[in-house]
Computed example of a mutant assay.
Amino acid sequence: MIRVKFILQFLTVYTLLLYAASDKPNTIETDDSRLDRIEEMITNPNERIRTLENIIINQKPDILNLKIKNRVHERKFWRVSQILGRSSQTMATKVVGSYANDLKNSKIQEKHEVLVKKKRLLEGSMVTTPVPTQKAVTAFYAYMSKSENIPGTHHTLIFDTAITNENNGYHPFSGIFIAPEKGIYVFSFSIRLECHSYGPYELVKNSQVVGVVFSDIRQVCLQDQITGTMVITANKGDDIYVRTHATTSHIGLIPSDDNGRSSFAGWLILN
């Protein structure tokens, strides 16, 4: 307030001096009129000063309210700053903690991989018991590609077309199966008979007859098929084959064609 009054008084005096200096030289005024004018000029500024004082007094509550609001805003700003500061610290802690956990997990993973590699190396250097593998299957099936014409006694029948020959025990050029291993085998042979034929047929192991089948259709003219099936024990290297009887002569043809085959088969069931 004091500064405002001082400024107004200074402006008033300055204005009077300018006005006095700007008066024309030929203007003649009395001392009373000048004094009146000066008094009037001084009075008006005083009125203005009082008006300004009243305005300032009236604005004091607003100024106080603004100061209070400003303090409230400052407090709110300070609280928000604290909250942000704590949040930033918490977030930073979480980020650092997460990074630390990732680093820890990464180291654990590396250790695990190293242990796995060492285990593999140790397992590779250890002598392990080999897993037993399944043995090869022994089985064969063969038939005559053409008919056998009136075979004599003690004659080995040759089934020259081998369809199945697992473990290569059967020899189609000789008609003999050579046992590749010891075990129990099943053998079956089927002989097709021509019209008015006659004769027995033997399954032989080495020189021992182990089975015989017989057919006699001399009195009739028809086609026939006889079959013999035997289960025997054979040692490795034993010969098994089919032949005509050693003493009884065979009469007739042994056919084998698309209408019916004469065949020989065998397979290992237990070793």
Rank of each mutant, 00 (worst) to 15 (best):
L115I: 13
D102P: 00
R192L: 08
G152F: 09
N101M: 09
K182H: 03
E74P: 02
F77K: 03
K146Y: 08
S87A: 12
M126D: 10
H171N: 15
R120L: 13
R86L: 12
V95L: 08
H155L: 01
H154P: 00
Q109R: 10
T164F: 11
T153D: 04
M126Q: 12
I176Q: 04
A179E: 01
Q109I: 13
L84A: 11
R86V: 14
F140V: 11
K76A: 10
F187E: 05
N165L: 07
N70C: 04
L157R: 00
F187P: 00
E148M: 12
I176A: 08
I108R: 06
F173R: 13
M126W: 06
T133L: 11
L193I: 01
V95R: 03
N167R: 02
Y99I: 09
T153R: 13
R79P: 00
Y141E: 02
N105F: 09
R120D: 08
Y170V: 11
I158D: 04
P130I: 06
R71C: 03
E123I: 12
M144L: 14
S147C: 03
T129R: 08
G169D: 03
N105K: 07
N105S: 11
L84G: 06
S87R: 09
A162H: 03
T129N: 07
E166K: 13
K118D: 15
S190L: 11
P132S: 05
F159D: 05
I184W: 08
L193N: 02
K111F: 02
V95Q: 05
T90S: 10
S87Q: 07
L193Y: 02
K118Y: 11
N101V: 12
T133W: 01
L193Q: 05
N167M: 05
S125Y: 07
Y185P: 04
L115V: 14
R86A: 11
N167A: 15
C195F: 05
A179P: 01
I108Y: 01
P61K: 15
G175I: 09
S81M: 06
M144P: 00
P180A: 03
T153H: 01
V116T: 15
N165K: 06
G124Q: 11
V116W: 09
V186T: 10
I83R: 06
G85R: 07
K182M: 06
M144F: 09
K76S: 05
L157V: 10
L66P: 00
L64G: 02
M126H: 03
E194N: 10
F173E: 13
N168L: 13
G97S: 10
T164R: 05
K135S: 11
L122G: 13
F187R: 03
H155I: 02
V72G: 08
N101H: 04
L115W: 01
G169T: 02
N149G: 09
K146Q: 15
K76N: 07
Y143R: 04
A142T: 01
T129C: 03
F77S: 08
N65G: 10
G169F: 02
K69R: 08
Q134A: 09
R79C: 02
T90G: 06
T128G: 06
K67T: 08
E194G: 04
W78K: 05
